[in-house]
Design a protein around this nucleic acid. Structure first.
Lengths: 190, 190, 190, 190
DNA sequence: GATGAATGAGTCTTCATTCAT
DNA sequence: GATGAATGAAGACTCATTCAT
């Protein structure tokens, strides 16, 4: 007896991310995913009841995984700016390393695949970031602007920069990272 | 292949934008587009040779249209900050009013529809913005950071904020618009 | 503009009956049905939303069509035996001519296709036959046995005889028809 | 291909009969059969080379089994009517108890599974019944009608009555059994 | 030009069968 | 022998595109 191979779930997810980045959600088929993952078409259906569930589960995983990394090395007793910087750097690194996931998430919004429940859950993952910004505002280090707007500002700028460099086929130098952080921080601070 | 009724072309484009926003590129069919535009399926093929061309032409139009609006009321003799502010406001207004186009463009980027040529052309439309930022850098009002990074910073932040408010089902108040401009400008300025 | 061709519905039904007789419900595919009807696969889906509906509609039609023929030339003022004979002959003729329909109906019972509603409706079609037998019982010409049992007796015997001759590749002679009617009538009469 | 555990073969057959009655031949899969029999999918293939053979073997068994029971308690020296009555009652009892088998046989007849050989063999099982009726005709107790027609009459009527009561969810009372036998016998007798 | 029915290649999904454990 | 995951051919269904009206 061969037990269900939890590894295969990961292989399928990985293959899906790669293909969505390349062709978009509109352009992928189960057969392609299977081939990319080194499996037969039917095998995909052992691990997922259908394409919908495959996409939704991947969506949920991507959302959750990112949230778990954001606060790595974050020390709540350190001064705000230092803590913010840590989290910001984590975010940047994660997004650069996992660009495919960002593309996938983006394509999922406005897709017939993602069900409403999944969307809501994923927003809750922003909460820790939300609290962080609130702290900065309480300490009067951050402008007294609606926190969600501030988060959109931070994440939007970062996403676009990651996207740009990705398509330029390069990485940000350390100097550039500092410069970009400077843009972001100067925008936020009082 | 493009006879008289230029009106129908616009109807089809409009229908496509609405549907892509609702269901994503992955979820739309020619039949749906035709119905939404109040036409028969076959009629779409009188105005577009195929789906590919329909999407590509819409992509090109969206790109161009936006570029044309950016510099409305821009006076090159006015001080830099004033000019930048004018362009920034134009950008913001355009994106809020035509959110569907932003979604469409975004979905197109990783899709099997958009051909390489179209992608390159569209980037050239950024040139005026590019020059504007360069001017700010020359006048030492803007940080000496790679201009493309600065553009990504400006546009990324703005896009995300527009998206956020769109999904919140609201508009930015005048005060919020000023606050957001403040974030952006404080980030950029020396 | 080419309007939906009601003829095609009939073609598809006809093709389905032929194939079910040949291969059973278990052995038919939409592609086969389409080919047999001289259509493309997709065309079948213009007239039926799915295989299920195709089978169910055919089931309903077969049931209804038969009921309409049973009482042809039946004169309620004629003596009972004469009227019964007329109906019995109609039944026999119909079943011999439309053997395929009988096979189809038979296969449909115990199939995943037929939905409960359809089953119930079809039973109501037996009502006229039911009344006829009741009349015979009232006139004390027919044995005082549960009417449904009598109907099952009549129809079961007839069905099997039709089936037998069909597979023998022959028709009943006039003499045989009379003989079989004799079996049936002698069983029923008081 | 048929090793020890004859028990499992029976379990698989039993499971198949139950499922065919419920869903028809068109609706069953090997996986369902295995699950119903409490086995793994692969195990079925230890006892049967393929689905075809599974169905055919079950078909053959059902046919044979029934034939063996028909003449239980039949005394060839008893008067014809008594002997016929014994056989008729055996047939009735068997069909009521094993309704599933009747459904299965019926579904098999127009199916891509049953091979021609199996069909012919099964008809030979009717021979004892055939001889019985011939005896009745020789003794001039039974109408001089083609024997196969008489058999179809007897079995068809009985099948339909069993089916009717089965779907009514009830059994025939002793009185009803006598009444139905009366119908049949009065039809046959001279 | 406009229509929408017709087409059939291409998807998703199922399922008989195989095979590693 | 038993298991159930893996396979891939085949079936249901969709949809871009064509074409008769």
């Amino acid at each position: 007896m061969k037990p269900k191979d939890e590894n295969k779930v990961r292989e399928i997810h990985r293959a899906t991310l790669a293909l969505v980045k390349e062709k978009g959600l509109a352009g992928i088929t189960i057969e392609q995913i299977a081939k990319q993952a080194g499996l037969a078409t039917g095998t995909v259906y052992i691990y997922f009841t259908n394409k919908d569930e495959l996409i939704n589960s991947l969506f949920a995983i991507c959302r959750k995984a990112s949230a778990e990394v954001y606060f790595k090395n974050y020390d709540p007793r350190a001064p705000f700016k230092e803590g913010f910087r840590t989290v910001w750097m984590n975010l940047l690194q994660y997004r650069m390393e996992r660009f495919e996931e960002a593309v996938f998430i983006e394509q999922c919004y406005h897709s017939p695949f993602i069900n409403a429940g999944n969307r809501d859950i994923s927003n809750q993952l922003l909460k820790p970031l939300f609290s962080l910004i609130e702290r900065g505002k309480n300490e009067q280090l951050i402008k007294p602007v609606d926190t969600l707007l501030l988060l959109a500002y931070i994440i939007g700028a970062m996403s676009e920069i990651v996207r740009l460099t990705h398509y330029q086929g390069r990485k940000l130098s350390n100097k550039e990272v500092e410069a970009v952080f400077g843009l972001c921080w100067d925008g936020l601070r009082t």
